[in-house]
């Protein structure tokens, strides 16, 4: 209903996209529209220029390079769900995004760069040691997921950069995903968890919606690697997360549920 009069640029190639990004650092980047269109209709975003990557070629691939899985930033949740190669954690997360209509448009890159702490797929990247490949006319660089989100909707992303792909190294271990949303579908997260554990070697305990950014719980991870009792791991993570009260839930609930989810998973793992 609120007509947006912004000028729209629709690059067909990545090179064009990067040049346009360099020329228009103020432009709003658009992919599947499932966030941007909501902001426009709510009147909270009033861009004059929009860089629409939906039709940009080369962003929807899923392949391997240098021993890593490479996910194009333009892959939709449906693409992920239909791919047998996609990591099970990511598939679990993609299935919880909105419902079918949203999954058909919502992209991995959009979720990452929208940067909402409640983004359903974001803890998965933390659990998988993913790196984000950022491109600009100046070249390429990789940023670990663990350092990409710096504060509430603050990303390590320069005004001339675009996220082009996500690199996931070959990781092992038991993994677990859990979303606690407001309902079974079309739900915004109250708590999201993605975890991975290689007994005695590596642990990833990553959360969404319990702090200003998607986050890992480093102290709890260390304790888990060191073989600390589950009680101790849970106690540490409950200290590390910083949930808030909002219209959807309470800080108390989020903190306790985060702990319960991790406890349930850790107790289900084979010992040793």
């Amino acid at each position: 209903m609120l007509r947006c009069e912004a000028e729209v640029f629709r690059p067909r190639t990545l090179n064009d996209a990067l040049q346009m990004r360099a020329d228009m650092p103020d432009a709003t980047v658009l992919a599947g529209g499932t966030d941007v269109m909501v902001y426009l209709e709510a009147g909270v975003l009033k861009p004059t220029r929009i860089l629409d990557l939906w039709g940009c070629q080369g962003l929807r691939g899923l392949g391997f390079a240098d021993g890593s899985q490479v996910y194009g930033a333009g892959l939709t949740c449906t693409d992920v769900l239909q791919s047998v190669q996609a990591h099970p954690l990511l598939r679990d997360a993609a299935a919880t995004v909105g419902a079918v209509q949203i999954q058909n448009r919502a992209t991995l890159g959009g979720n990452i760069c929208n940067g909402s702490p409640a983004g359903d797929t974001l803890p998965v990247w933390l659990a998988l040691n993913a790196e984000f490949e950022l491109a600009s006319v100046r070249g390429f660089r990789r940023v670990p997921a663990a350092t990409f989100w710096r504060g509430y909707k603050q990303m390590d992303l320069q005004p001339d950069e675009l996220l082009v792909s996500i690199h996931v190294p070959a990781v092992t271990g038991n993994s677990h995903f859990r979303k606690v949303g407001t309902r079974m579908a079309q739900a915004i997260s109250k708590v999201i968890f993605a975890g991975r554990s290689v007994a005695g070697r590596e642990a990833r305990l990553a959360f969404g919606a319990v702090g200003p950014t998607p986050m890992r719980c480093a102290a709890a991870e260390e304790a888990l690697v060191a073989g600390a009792p589950v009680d101790e791991v849970v106690r540490l993570l409950e200290e590390e997360i910083v949930p808030i009260d909002d219209v959807r839930s309470t800080a108390l609930y989020r903190r306790k549920v985060a702990g319960r989810i991790v406890r349930r998973w850790l107790e289900s793992l084979p010992r040793g």
Partner: peptide, 10 residues
Amino acid sequence: RVRPGVVGAE
């Protein structure tokens, strides 16, 4: 019943 995003819940 299907519960997207939920496995191993008690």
